[in-house]
Design a protein around this nucleic acid. Structure first.
Lengths: 110, 110
DNA sequence: ATATTTAATCGTAATATTGCGATATAAAAT
DNA sequence: ATTTTATATCGCAATATTACGATTAAATAT
């Protein structure tokens, strides 16, 4: 026990949860907002911008990259990060679908 | 170390992360989907529906209630749960705003 | 009154996440 | 060639999450 029992859920449910998990940290929210605002940046920019250690920022970038939501391109000694617009738009669509307007007219208890 | 350094981020960033965290587990995704489909249900329904123990379901319900996204009404020995439509719609709006279309024409590196 | 049903909470083990110093690797500058 | 710069990775400690059996509390049924 202790580990999420993914085998009990559908692929879509597990993927939705993973998408949410990818942005379930304020540092990753901040990184994505910075990338949206500046179009692109390197790890060092984010270390200056947020107050976290370089190792920590690098780890968060790795998670966002694993989720597919950002890409990194090696530019000499630096790595330039940016949003993957296709994945970004897919996230928007899937979250939007998940939070579809609910029917208020039903026989809810509360 | 070990704890999220919320003091480094804005209130909005921390709240967005908490919203994402609320749905960052497949069981909670499944619970919300079940509530949307059935309009309302009790804890026992979810224990039958998903394969998790009663204590585990109860814990997930508590987290969703803490996030404000569901409500529970005591009905005798049972507690009837349902979506809070106002919070639900706010989640939709905030996720939708977060994933606003990004400008593809910029000088991104990748 | 007693037994049963329902759900919350407690306690605890397993696992995952967060954060950071130290180190490794590779490019750029001197 | 050596030093500096930039980032990734390792190792570890602190904290958080997940899961569930056992227990509790309160309503319902017998």
């Amino acid at each position: 026990m202790g580990a999420t029992r993914t085998e009990l859920f559908t692929k879509a449910q597990n993927e939705m949860a993973l998408m949410a998990k990818a942005i379930a940290h304020p540092a990753r929210i901040a990184i994505l907002q910075h990338l949206v605002a500046k179009n692109a940046c390197v790890c060092g920019d984010l270390v200056d911008e947020l107050g976290l250690a370089q190792a920590t920022i690098s780890q968060h970038l790795k998670e966002l990259k694993n989720a597919g939501i950002i890409q990194g391109t090696v530019e000499g000694a630096r790595v330039c990060y940016c949003i993957d617009p296709n994945v970004w738009n897919e996230y928007q669509t899937l979250f939007n679908n998940f939070f579809r307007r609910v029917d208020l007219s039903g026989d809810a208890c509360c």
